[in-house]
Amino acid sequence: MKRIIPLTLCLLSFLGCSSKVTEESLYQQLNGQPGIEKIVDSFIQQIAKDKQIFPYFAKASVSHFRQGFITHLCDVSGGPCQYQGDNMNDIHTGMQITEADFNRVVELLINAMEENNITYPAQNRVLALLAPLRAEVIKI
């Protein structure tokens, strides 16, 4: 134990060092409005290519979803927007989205952020902001 505690602290403090970069807002880490638009465009392409998820979007309006999600991401990441679109419950009622589908969408969003070189900590912060919405999205 004597050897493990210092080693653990050392590893944790190494992670702590990287927190210096977090002074800028999440919105800035996503490269602002143009960055968020690129992420959402990549996300839509990811969905279009995905056999598991695409059927849920087959009847949706791509431009409506695109604008709604861009505003939503801008809002939750601290940007100068206010999402006043449809609420999550209304959008997803009747879709019967499973836990696995939800996680697949999370993975597609991660892919979209990876494509746009968003850092891993910024990716996690985005997911942390969106994760609480899961209860309003799945199995309804």
Partner: peptide, 8 residues
């Protein structure tokens, strides 16, 4: 915990 420790 998503992003708990400096985003990790």
């Amino acid at each position: 915990h998503l992003g708990l420790l400096a985003g990790y």
